[in-house]
Design a protein around this nucleic acid. Structure first.
Lengths: 192, 192
DNA sequence: ACCTGAACACCGTTCAAGT
DNA sequence: ACCTGAACACCGTTCAAGT
């Protein structure tokens, strides 16, 4: 009766994050409330506070999932191309989840969540930047998050007709700006 | 009795924004509620909705004030230095107001607020980037906003002891990352 | 270990009505 | 032109108590 296996585990942290991600995709960040998430799980709002200290902790877990969903980049013979690919993969992951960029940006800023985004960029930057790879990764990450946040909110605005462009258009148009920014940032290191 | 001069004007948009900015500095964005702002003005919350369509419009006005507070940069003989100075001035303005970066970022992203930030950067970039000045300004602005948002939230975290560094330290340490990022971005154009 | 029930102290926004 | 009063439909979080 008092065994240590999780017999009667009704909800787990990971399971709650699953549901939260689904709700995020359906309703967006403004409607991702603790109360609505609880209702979705068939549970009282207060039940969530057994699993998470507060809403920010839940968002940190969500941010980690989004970042982890970025496709990994296998090292090739062209380091600059690897950096561009890693940055694009991160951008794609952020844009794939509704309000993903904003969630990751604020989590990162608060010092919560993991460092995998930063570490992955530092990894592909190492061949180019050497000892400067850490701070180069910081700079690149800031650009990616700033860019993706702007693009994503512009997409949201487009949904409500507040901004005159369809979603696909926005993503496409801004892709060239993004590529240019990454090229500029990488160019400095590529020249040594 | 029905003259067109503003005899009995109790509150104006600009006056409300003044009070909102003061409240922002004292209490921060999370505590900048329409209800609290109304109380500060000695007025019912609903009164604010005669002056502003909604909270986002108020924030857009606040964002414009913050951006406008950036020191202007007089054109010199060294365009690259002008760009660096303009970017720094914008960063300083964003960091001077509590949660300034976040407010400007989200306003910009929603397509609200003015374009003076973008236009100023495009202006100093013109000698270097020529026809590409517009998109170069977009890229640079995204980096500045991403950088400042990260730095600022990290400062907020420091206030609550959640992040192990004093405010001045954070601003100083990150200044070199910022300068590096700007140099990288500008370097691409400086070479033609 | 995991959740309920009830409460506390708040939000943004609308709208008829007042002056 | 500018504001009040009252309401609607919500929030995040805490905490004793239940199983």
């Amino acid at each position: 009766m008092e065994s240590r296996d999780a017999r009667t585990e009704r909800h787990t942290r990971d399971g709650i994050v699953d549901t939260a991600l689904a709700l995020l995709q359906r309703a967006g960040l403004p409607d991702l409330s603790m109360r609505r998430l609880a209702a979705e799980l068939g549970v009282q709002p207060s039940a969530l506070y057994w699993h998470f200290d507060n809403k920010q902790s839940l968002l940190a877990d969500i941010a980690d999932r989004i970042v982890a969903s970025a496709a990994p980049v296998a090292p090739s013979a062209e380091p600059a191309a690897d950096v561009a690919a890693a940055a694009s993969a991160l951008r794609d992951a952020l844009l794939a989840y509704r309000d993903g960029a904003e969630i990751v940006l604020s989590t990162q800023a608060l010092g919560l969540g993991s460092d995998v985004a930063h570490d992955r960029l530092a990894g592909v930057l190492a061949p180019l930047a050497g000892d400067d790879a850490q701070s180069a990764a910081t700079v690149l990450l800031q650009f990616v998050l700033g860019h993706a946040s702007l693009v994503q909110q512009r997409i949201q605005a487009a949904r409500f007709g507040a901004y005159p462009a369809a979603e696909a258009e926005v993503v496409e148009q801004t892709a060239s700006d993004f590529a240019r920014g990454v090229r500029m940032l990488v160019g400095g290191y590529a020249r040594g």
